[in-house]
Amino acid sequence: MLAVLRVAVIAAAAAAAAGPLLYGAVLSVRPFASVVADPLAPPSPGGADLSAYPRALADEEDGGFGLARFMRNSLAVAGWTTVLAVACSVLGAYAAVRLRFFGRDAVGGFFLAVYLLPGIVLAVPLFVLLGRAGLAGSLPGLVLVYMAQTVPVALYMLRGYLQAVPAGVEEAAEVDGCNRLQVIVRVVLPMAVPGVAATALYVFLIAWNEYLFALLFLVADRERWTVSLGVARLADFAVPAPVLMAGSIAITVPVVAGFLLAQRLLVSGLAAGAEKG
């Protein structure tokens, strides 16, 4: 009885988790007319119709919807966010783990503050402040906002990973005449590579997926749209469903694949907080 229930729960959960994505993938390779005629039919046996993908990706001049350009924008924004946020948080996490200094315990509190403040409330003053600084509507402005949103999480995750790195090696390096930065770059980082990689991936994921600030800062400038903004805007126009699904799948596959590949590492970093409870 319990065993049956367990199998039913697992089957339902798997269907719920993967179903919508599979549905999107199937729809993206069916011609729109056949979707309207029979919404539940599998892709035609003659083979998948992949034309929705090049249409979604191609630039507007070529009759497409510009998704490839949105992806380049998102890649740049998420890439810079990742580099800068990880650089900041490696330094901060090292300090929080190894050094005694005034306010060290507040680093954790800071993390919580940013993590829990409503983004929509921050959006109002940021709109004004970045507008005054001439950064609204620019990709660097967006990178700055994403950095602030991700550095605390990254710092929190890295702190957990760095705690697992033995301190003895660092002391040896210090005795050999390395200064603090050299110790971090040459000794600590190489030993924490998996943790740093997982953190970087998580930051990239957040920046790639972000929607609200992209909407507020970039909506007027189609050239600079990110993937989230691009796909959301296309959904507002009368874009055929297969193209929309192709766009959704195209922006999902890279991040979900990365997430699943690094899943073990990420999970241990994310769930670290739960184990002490």
């Binding site: 988790a17 919508p20 999107g24 997926n209 903004l229 922006i251 999902t252 991040v255 999970v267």
Partner: peptide
């Protein structure tokens, strides 16, 4: 199980 959490919210709502 982690797929819905990892995918872009816009892809989720569009689908």
């Amino acid at each position: 199980m982690l797929v819905p959490y990892a995918l872009p919210v816009v892809a989720g709502t569009t689908i």
